[in-house]
Every structure is written in structure tokens, then in C-alpha cells.
Nucleic acid binder design. Structure first.
Lengths: 352, 352
DNA sequence: TTGAAAGCGTTACCAG
DNA sequence: CTGGTAACGCTTTCAA
């Protein structure tokens, strides 16, 4: 049926082992033999059976990725970049969406280990690493993505969320806003660090962030808009009403802005808004949303790089990679009049 | 290290085969033996080695999915639903983003076959099936997703795009619009069928859709907004200017609406817009966008169902599943005044 | 530089 | 109902 290593070996009068070595570019084989084997492989369009290789080596050429919600643009983009980077090294990507459910996450971890993934990347939905791995699994490299467990020494690739929070604080302060509020996310490292960075920037300027001006919401990745809407309604009851709101992510900010607009507030004149994540549609919103960009693709590349390194050099020490985020200013926090595209007068009103 | 079938068998004094059969619920084994084996497995937390099973059976418990762009909400949602459905059957999902590049797509197909995926799902970026598969690969079930090759007898799961186009046409006509235009997509079945459905609806009402009023754009999945903006600028030069525009997808519609707004047109009073796909953010746009919803999650479930069926019953005849789309009306095509949320008067203007 | 022997953990085939 | 033998296709180890 399909052509096997054995067939090539037979055709050429060499052993299977020799063919195998030539295929993988082993050092101890003559240049001439290698060439003959490779030529033959090309001629018959040989494709190695990766399941056999996986069984023999103990690990497949597949990386596992578990994210809380694949539809979230951040995770989608991360997965895309990761997959693209892995392809260059002939590695595949097996993907699972945990729906922010620790039970599903655990199940997926189990299945991926059973499939002998070369490395496992997780944006975990649980507060600690407790029980994720047991000793027997330790041979599979683990990389935490986006969400960190600070107390542990684990591999991590993600955004420098603290710096992002700082950026947000500095920016809103630079607009002259002094009654700031924060809409936070789930009790995991990104939300915590963004909040701490934000608070830190404010403190440095002697500004207080009273507890009444912070609120968080659960399942914010998926239902952020509704949650943001509800929380913003609370914040607008404060006196004075906040004049700048930093939101955990863009979706939350979108909901919050909607609440403010519905209540008749002007954005950004009365309330400025700042999101996090810089999703694709932010610039087309009713009020284009300022946001903190996470360099998501770059994160994917770095994660792929680290995963491959851990597979090839298991002795690699624990590595933490935090990429610096970037402020993107749009109308929701821009006090200058937005630069107008040429605006032709209304013409040719609709017939009939 | 890890516990193997052999260990269980030894502990219980049965053969490996017996243990294997008990594990998979084979019929020819005594109830008592089965119970003993399963109990032992639970006790020692046995996890079958899927790479070994894959080698022995010839196919892994992994389904391959290749999409043009994972960041596109439609494909992200499809992948998410698919993965969720597969998990219930202990199947995994290996995912690749082809970047709308036939070369990458081909490479991924090759790699997935090498990994012996149980079935291969492709939203192909090429115009025909030519060369996707060669005879040797035919044992791996192939399912086309979203994009069909109508001339061939292949498995297909996707939206009834023709019906969607019809819905769009009927809707715009029902608003009294008569100078309709269409911004199309790449030369693949979804764009073609949506256009034909649209045109069909218009014809049925005796309305013409002149060629000058249709335009298409390439790489519309990713760059649709910019493309839509540019194309709309062309359409606005027509006389009379179109009073209703049906766009291939939401991103294109977003760009087109932006162009119309920049040119000073009122939406929907002067020009109504209709997208396709109903992405998550559509309701928060400057003008909330009407769209055709594709029941994307349902598509994912159906695709999973079909894939598993093809794996388990290879004799299954070619199957085509087309899910009916649904119209979602928002402000961009709503002539009635939009239902207002309670709109409080401006209060508490910003201090200092 | 080459290759024979021995697995990797599971399932298929067939005899008992 | 049970289990021995062989096979899946490749890699690793070590001897020639």
C-alpha cells in the first residue's frame, strides 16, 4: 500500500536501519549512501509513518495546546502563530478549548499525555498548578502560556501584564483624568498583574484607587461584554463618576462603553476607556477603542521556540519569557479631535 | 514507569489480549473478567498509549482540520465546536491554518496523513480537489468543510450559501431597495453560491443586478475590511449610488460601511448593508451590522458526527450536509428606529 | 560505515 | 470465552 522504509531498503539493497539513518541525517553514514537513499525516497514519495516513530521514540511530533476559549481572538492568534512556527520544524499542533472549565482542562491534559505530545502548553483556567501533573508525567515538558502560577518554577511565555497595567495607568493620567476605575478579570495572573501595574502607576503619582472603583467579573473572556455592561452601570453610580476606566480586556471595555453611551455619557470627553488585547475589530466600534497590544503572534513564535528547545534539550532550565505590551491610542481615550478621513458631502440621496 | 496493559494482565493473571478486550468493551469476554480488569485499571490509573494503538490500528484517534485562517471567528468557532464534540468520543483535534496558501495546505495535508489522522477536514483554499489526494490516501476519509467542490462526489459539511444569498436579497428588497450591489469574495463555492442566491432572489422579483454593481476581492477573509473599503469607494461612484449592499462577509461589510460613512452617507437611510457570518462584535459597531448567521457551532457538531461515522463505517456513502442560515437584522438594514435602551440624561459632568 | 537483534505498547487473526 | 503468535513501522543498542 503505502511505501515503507523497508521497501526503500530492499530496492536499494541496504538495511532498514541504514535507510532510517539517512532519512534523519545521522552522522555515521557515507555521503554516497545517504544520497542514494534520499533520492529513492523522493522518487517514490516516501512519507514516514509518524505513529510508528512516535511509538519507537516515546513522543510524537505534536505539541499540545489547551486554551480557555479558542474563539477569543487572543488565543486564536496565539494558536495560529504557534502552528505556523511549528510547521517549519515539521511539528503539528493538537488543540483543545477548555471552556474555562478545570474539569475539561484536566481531561484534555490526560488525553494529550496519552497521545504522547512532545510538549504541553496550557493557558490554565485554574488558580494553581496543584494536581496538573503527577510525577510520572514530568518527562513531558510543560509550558504555561499567558497565565502564570507565580509561586512555582515553571516554564512561562506570556505578556508582561504588570507593564501593561502601568502603561494603562500612565496613559489615563496623562489625559488629566484623576478619578480612575478598573474593571478586572478572573483571579488569575493576567488580571492580577494588570491591576497591580495599574495601581502601581497611580500610586507613583499619588493617586488613590479606592476599592469601590474596582470590580471584577468571571468568565470575562467569553461574556465580557455583558459583564462589562453590568459592572459599568455600578461604576456610574459613584460620585463622582469615574472619568477614566481601564478594563481587563477589550470585550469588557466594549460592554462598558455601551453602558456609558446608553447612559448618555460622552466618550472620551466625560469618560475615557482603555481595553487590553487590541482585537481586530476595535477600530470599527461605535467609539474606536484604545487598547494595550500584546504582540500575540510574537508570543506564539516564542512559545514554539521554547517548546522545541525543551524537547531537544530536556536539561534546559526553567525559562520565563514576558513580552512587553504596547499602547494603541484610539478615540476612546483621545482628547484631540480624531484625524478625519476626507468626508465628502452627502450626495445622490437614495432614489425612491 | 507508566503502567502498561502488560502490567495489568500480569497482576490479574490474565493475558494481555484479554485485558485489551476488556478495555475496549469487546463482546467475547466474561462479565466477571471485564469487571476485574476495569477495576484494576482504575486502581492503577491506567492510560492507554495512543501512539501504540495508532500504530496497531493504522489510524490515530485524532481528526485533522485545515482552515484558511484560524483567527477568523467562523473558523475559530467551527474548530471549537468540533473539538468539543470530538472530546466526548475521546478523539483529539489537530489543527492547521493554511494562510489561504495552497502550498501550505498541501504540506499540512501531507503531514496529517503521515500522522495517520482518522479523518481529514479541509476548508480548502484551492478551486478544485485536483491533486489533494492520491489513490494511496483514499483510506483516510476526507470531508470538505464550508467550501465545496461541486463537481465532485465528496463529503461536505457547510452552510447553505445559496439560501443565505436568497435571504439577503429578499431582505433588502423587502426594505424597498431596488438599486442593489454585491461585494463578493474569492472564487470558491461560498462566495459563488451566496452571489447566485442573491441574484436569484432579485431575478424572481424582476430586479436586475448589473455587472457594474458586483465586485470581488481576494484574501477577503483576512483583509476584508480594507478590501471592502476600497470596493465600496468604487460602488459609490455609480449613478445612482446603490441603496443596498450585500457583502460576502462581515469584515468586508464593516470596511464598506466605513467608506460609506466617510463619504457622508447615512446608514441605513441612504444605503443599507448586510454582511454574512454574524461575528461576535457586529452589534457593537458604529452601525450595528445586519448579517446572515451560519449556525457555526452546529456545523462543528455535524462535522464531528460525520467524521466519526466515516471512521467507524468506512462504507458510508458520500454525504452532503448543508445547514440553513438565518437572517439577523440590526441597525445597518433596519428602517424602523432602533429600539432604545433606557437613555439617562447626561449627569455628573467630569470634575476638573 | 553498516546492520542484526530487540524492542516500543497495542491490536488482529486464529487456534484452542 | 481465552490467549499465543505475529504484526504495525520505526528507532536504539551494540556488535561486526
Amino acid at each position: 500500500m503505502t511505501v515503507r522504509l523497508k521497501d526503500i531498503a530492499r530496492d536499494l539493497g541496504v538495511s532498514v536501519i541504514t535507510a532510517s539513518k539517512a532519512l534523519r541525517g545521522s552522522k555515521d553514514i557515507s555521503e554516497e549512501t545517504r544520497k542514494r537513499v534520499l533520492a529513492r525516497m523522493r522518487a517514490v514519495n516516501y512519507q514516514p509513518n509518524m505513529t510508528a516513530r512516535a511509538l519507537a521514540t516515546g513522543h510524537s511530533s505534536i505539541i499540545g495546546l489547551i486554551v480557555p476559549d479558542l474563539v477569543h481572538p487572543f488565543f486564536a492568534e496565539l494558536a495560529k502563530a504557534l502552528g505556523g512556527a511549528l510547521r517549519k520544524d515539521n511539528y503539528g499542533l493538537i488543540l483543545a478549548s477548555s471552556e474555562e472549565d478545570p474539569g475539561i482542562e484536566q481531561e484534555e491534559i490526560r488525553m494529550m499525555l496519552a497521545r504522547r505530545v512532545g510538549a504541553l502548553l496550557i493557558a490554565s483556567t485554574r488558580p494553581s498548578l496543584q494536581g496538573i501533573y503527577n510525577v510520572a508525567d514530568l518527562r513531558t515538558p510543560l509550558i504555561l502560556v499567558d497565565r502564570n502560577f507565580p509561586q512555582l518554577r515553571v516554564n512561562f511565555v506570556g505578556t508582561d501584564d504588570y507593564a501593561g497595567g502601568q502603561l494603562a495607568g500612565e496613559h489615563l493620567l496623562s489625559l488629566g483624568r484623576r478619578h480612575l476605575a478598573h474593571i478586572g478579570g478572573p483571579d488569575l495572573s493576567p488580571a492580577i498583574d494588570r491591576f497591580l501595574g495599574f495601581q502601581g502607576a497611580l500610586r507613583r503619582h499619588g493617586i488613590d484607587l479606592p476599592e469601590s472603583h474596582t470590580a471584577s467579573v468571571a468568565r470575562v473572556e467569553e461574556l465580557g461584554d455583558e459583564a462589562g455592561y453590568a459592572v459599568m452601570q455600578q461604576l456610574m453610580r459613584l460620585n463622582p463618576v469615574p472619568d477614566g476606566v481601564f478594563c481587563y480586556n477589550d470585550l469588557t471595555a466594549i460592554g462598558a462603553m455601551q453602558a456609558a453611551l446608553d447612559a448618555g455619557f460622552a466618550i472620551p470627553e466625560q469618560i475615557a476607556f482603555l481595553g487590553f488585547g487590541n482585537v481586530r475589530y476595535s477600530k470599527y466600534l461605535r467609539v474606536p477603542l484604545s487598547s494595550i497590544d500584546q504582540a500575540t503572534s510574537e508570543l506564539g513564535f516564542k512559545a514554539a521556540e521554547l517548546a522545541l528547545k525543551l524537547i531537544r534539550e530536556p536539561a534546559t532550565p526553567h525559562t520565563t519569557i514576558k513580552l512587553p505590551p504596547k499602547l494603541v491610542v484610539r478615540a476612546s481615550s483621545n482628547v484631540e479631535p480624531a484625524p478625519q478621513r476626507k468626508s465628502t458631502a452627502v450626495r445622490s440621496p437614495r432614489k425612491r
